[in-house]
Computed example of a mutant assay.
Amino acid sequence: MRSIARRLASLRMLTTPLVLTFVGVVLLSLGVAYLFIHVYRTVEGLPLFFEILTLQFLPRPVRGFLLIVTGVGTLVAGIWRLSDVVIVKLRTTEAQGDDELVLGYRREVPPSVAVISGGPGLLVLSAIGEQVQRMTCIVPVQDHVEYYYRASALFNLRNVYYVVPTPEPIQVVAKLDDGNNVDVRHLALDPQIAPRHVAHMSLDGPENPPLTRLAAETIRDADAIILGPGSLFESILPNLLIPELRAAIIASRARTIYVCNLMTEPGRTTGFSVADHIRAIKQYGGFTPTYVLVNAQRIDPEVTRLYAAAHQLPVYLSPEEYEETALLRSDPGSHRGVMIEGAMVLEADLASSVIQYTASLTNPSESRAARVLRHDSQKLSRAILELLRKP
């Protein structure tokens, strides 16, 4: 119902013209009806087609009912078709007269997108916010305020919104493969657990926390649900631990797009392959992503060496993970996709190497430059938008 209301709301600038048109059509119909009555009563020997045209073979109440039903149906169909028209208001100067309306049929309605990610991941998707009808970001359940401020620059866009999944934050506990339990927010802070990976995670709170109304509506109305980019166990999976959110995604008809990490994460996804990332989503979310985007760009050896020193390795597709190969058609060309764990996995150039400056904790005036790998906002947005345009 909300989508229907939004579509009809596009006619608000045409309210007066539509009312005048409706009144004019009613008056015209009455005038034609009076002429038919006059002809029928005064002219003798009318041909048979005139009797058929005026439905004289039916009782008057039946004739009236059929005409009313037909008229209402035609009116509704016309308004519905008109609501699929793009209405552009041209503002003119006072010398030129009143504002004008330019109408044209919409070739493609921009999709509404739901995003489940952390602050940095939301910023990477900023280019998508300018291309969709609505982008709503559902931030991680464990710290609403922190992730809001991380992505606060996004909310300068008029069609980007921010919602929290639960009324109150809920902490998430990760159990590592060595049996230790750690708050997911602290996984990256302890270098001693860098070689480890998460074996299990759970909410440190109620088993079935309430889902906010806005989060439920976001999933329900979304044409696509984007998971990532961001930390798998800190930014994406925590929200999938909420039963109502998980059920809403499973029940949704929206396509799901998972943006796989560029590198493994120390203490979280050490040793993970693309298939391991997908299995984690299936384990905690109960669904298989429709598409999975994986970086195909080969990383500079020097950058790889720096990451390896921090127990991080690139996440690439490997032939042993392939279940089958498919060719995914698109307008500009074709992409080779492979099926892994039931998901269509696509390789694309999604990353860029950038110089990042970090300040010293002991001496904030000093900074250190390091070459890091990041998802490229334009490249990633282009790949996602191409998937959104597919029927």
Rank of each mutant, 00 (worst) to 15 (best):
L157D: 08
I87R: 15
A9M: 15
C137G: 01
S377E: 07
G333C: 06
T264W: 07
Y322H: 15
V274F: 03
A251I: 04
E168K: 09
A95T: 11
R253C: 11
S235E: 00
L293K: 02
M1N: 11
P314L: 02
R106Q: 09
A222F: 08
D99W: 09
V372L: 12
L237R: 00
V26H: 04
A370P: 06
L103M: 10
G104L: 13
T362A: 09
A188D: 10
I52V: 06
L361K: 11
A188E: 07
I116M: 10
R158F: 07
G45S: 13
S352P: 14
E108H: 06
R371F: 06
T288K: 05
L103K: 12
I340S: 00
K175A: 03
L8M: 12
D223P: 10
H335G: 11
L154Q: 02
Q356S: 11
L240P: 01
S330H: 14
L240K: 10
D84F: 07
E265Y: 01
A33S: 15
G333F: 05
A174V: 03
E265M: 01
P319D: 06
S273E: 05
R329D: 13
P319L: 13
S360P: 04
E265G: 04
F155D: 00
Q356M: 14
G228P: 01
G285I: 06
L20E: 09
V182W: 06
S235Y: 01
L27W: 11
S273C: 03
G286I: 08
V163Q: 04
V72W: 02
G121D: 00
G179W: 09
M13L: 08
Q356P: 04
A77E: 09
M344N: 08
T136I: 12
R7P: 12
F36Y: 05
I226N: 00
S330I: 10
G285P: 02
F49A: 10
L237T: 01
D177F: 07
A343F: 01
T264F: 14
Y291Q: 00
G228L: 05
E321W: 02
R41S: 14
K175M: 10
V372N: 11
D221H: 13
N208H: 09
E366T: 04
A188P: 04
T15E: 13
S3C: 10
D300A: 11
L380D: 00
T325N: 03
P289F: 07
S83N: 07
L187S: 00
L157Q: 05
A5V: 13
P110M: 10
T304E: 14
T270R: 14
I340D: 00
V145I: 10
D223T: 02
I257T: 02
R185I: 05
